[in-house]
Amino acid sequence: MVELRTERRYQRGAPALKEYEMNKLARWGLTMPATIAVVLLLVIPVVLTIATTFGEAAGPFSTYTAFFKSGFRMAVLYRTLQVALITTGIALVVGFITAYVIAQMPGRLKSIMIVAAVFPLLTGVVVRSFAWLIILGKNGIINNALMSVGLIGEPLSMLYTQGSVIVAMVYLFVPLMILTLVGVLEGIPRDLIEAATSLGARPIPTFLQVILPLAAPGLIVGAVLVFTGSFTSYATPQLLGGEKQMMMGTFLYQRAMVTFDWVGASTIAAIMVIITIGVVLIMSRMARRLNPMAV
């Protein structure tokens, strides 16, 4: 009886089995082109690039010790970290307040404000950095305005300073922060804030104890986006920082394409990859732990 059943099932199951095999084939076949593309064109090239840094005659870590011992190279790394951290901090505060205001707006005004934030985001990095050349330049708007008022006698040199890079970076990344946070803030249930208010909480404690914890995961996502974006940027430090304000991105390019020091460039690349991926991993773990809705 049992044998007969298995046999029948086998006969009946044949098409189902075929279907299963086909599904298996389909799910691998469908993901295969993208998988091959990423592995072949991204993973292998990047891993090989990093691998070349360990193949020096002077020892596997010699390029790294050289990097960490060189005052100039460490200054570039510190400057990059500093610019990225300051940019992230400013973008967090500015983005949060603006997103908070946008989230309170009635429908139509809200969409207009979102459009106004999206538009710069969709405009290219080169164009947006270029605007600051016109604003901060020797013959720029600020200098012309200050001179015509008579506040200064000679044009200030504001370009190619850390300040000019940070201003342009904040300009670049605030829209990203706003858009990340508007979604998060809109997702906070109204009842929670009403509950806090009706129980007598003042605005500031409500903000600190209700809104901020609920927005924390979003703030972390935004911070990661802005930090990694500014840490690895190229066009903005190139245009507004120049040689004087070299950052990791421009330093990598200079080593690779101007001095043709490919091992040096690969070392910079490796350090950038490790810092970016490290920050993303640590922060995403933190975001998961901080999410009060997940408990």
Binding site: I44, P45, V46, T232, G249, A265, T276, I277
Partner: peptide, 16 residues
């Protein structure tokens, strides 16, 4: 491709 810094990706592509 989002996680790996763009500039590193560009350099790695050029090399390989």
């Amino acid at each position: 491709p989002i996680l790996v810094p763009e500039i590193v990706f560009g350099f790695a592509l050029l090399k390989s």
